[in-house]
């Protein structure tokens, strides 16, 4: 592709985002006033500490626009929240930025992609820290300190678990991988991880994926039901049993696939093709469902074109013209 053509594509991508946002603003101002607004119900918390200082905060709980308006009318503390409304608009714009890649690579897509990479790495790090490191490691080694800082509900008579020094040491060694000179020491914890992993896998794969698969494959090829010979079940069982065997023969590479073996192996391929065809069908199904999910977000939460969750004012003109169209 020439440089100019690529730039042309980039322009299309950026235009998609800009036009999308322009339409959304027009929609939210003129067609469906307030589209994309996020409402919350507020609860004030006030606590007086032992030393007399006062701690207060406001808790926000998301409510739908409809509920919010009803609550506000009934003098309950509900109102639109600017930060969440901006958040939702930001999310919608980021969604368009990603979609813009379809029309060509462009700076907006690249920026959105860069955000995903950075944000997800940090996201996982934070979760690993607060949800495993703190409760499963730090709380066991320093119970008192953890209780007074992070986990006040921890039992007061929790004792120190000295065995946890071992994973602590292994953790430190693993992190040394980031240091260039002594990075090799991280092989120790890595080897430990791989050893455990192999040990787990060895048993589980043999047990669940090998031994347990043999039983359900041994089925009668001729099924005699209450009314005598059952053609349908017999045929199904033949396909299942012989199909599995044929595929296994195909996977068996120690013998040359010639003669009778070759014929069986070929029918194994047919069975695998059917398998892959089904896998393709299901994959397509999955992908379309994900896209539908994103479109529903844009049409429902952002633009208020539809209202399947009965959440905002029903001004969906498409809903009213749909019966006429049909």
């Amino acid at each position: 592709m020439t440089h100019a053509a690529r730039r042309g594509n980039a322009t299309f991508g950026v235009l998609l985002v800009l036009i999308g946002v322009a339409i959304a603003i027009l929609n939210a101002v003129a067609l469906r006033p307030g589209a994309g607004t996020q409402w919350t119900q507020r609860t004030e918390h006030v606590h007086t500490l032992e030393d007399g200082t006062e701690v207060r905060w406001t808790e926000h709980e998301a409510v739908s626009v409809k509920e919010g308006r009803e609550m506000a009318a009934a003098d309950q503390d509900a109102a639109p929240l600017l930060s969440r409304t901006l958040g939702l608009w930001g999310a919608a714009i980021l969604t368009l930025c990603i979609f813009s890649f379809l029309l060509g690579d462009n700076p907006l897509y690249k920026a959105a992609e860069a955000i995903v990479v950075g944000a997800s790495a940090a996201y996982w790090m934070v979760i690993g820290f607060w949800e495993t490191m703190v409760p499963n490691l730090i709380a066991g080694l320093f119970p008192e300190w953890t209780r007074s800082n992070f986990m006040p509900r921890l039992s007061e008579d929790a004792s120190v678990d000295f065995l946890l020094l071992i994973p602590l040491a292994l953790s430190v060694l693993l992190l040394l991988r980031l240091a260039p000179k002594i990075g090799w020491i991280s092989r120790w914890p890595t080897a430990f991880i791989i050893g455990v992993f192999c040990g787990l896998r060895f048993i589980s794969s043999l047990e669940a994926d090998f031994l347990s698969q043999i039983g359900p494959t041994i089925k009668p090829l001729i099924v005699i039901g209450e009314n005598g010979f059952d053609l349908e079940s017999s045929f199904s069982n033949i396909v299942l049993v012989l199909g599995t065997l044929a595929c296994l023969v195909y996977f068996f590479f120690s013998v040359e696939h010639k003669g009778a073996i070759g014929k069986v192996a070929r029918s194994g391929i047919w069975m695998l093709m059917i398998t892959f065809g089904a896998a393709f069908g299901y994959t397509v199904m999955g992908r379309i469902a994900l896209l539908a999910g994103r479109f529903e977000f844009l049409f429902d939460d952002w633009l208020w074109l539809i209202d399947p969750k009965d959440a905002h004012p029903a001004q969906a003109f498409l809903q009213t013209i749909a019966p006429m169209l049909m």
Binding site: A121, W124, F129, T132, M133, N136, L137, P167
Partner: peptide, 10 residues
Amino acid sequence: ILAAVAFILG
């Protein structure tokens, strides 16, 4: 626990 450290390493 080491799996959590892997997140930090990442």
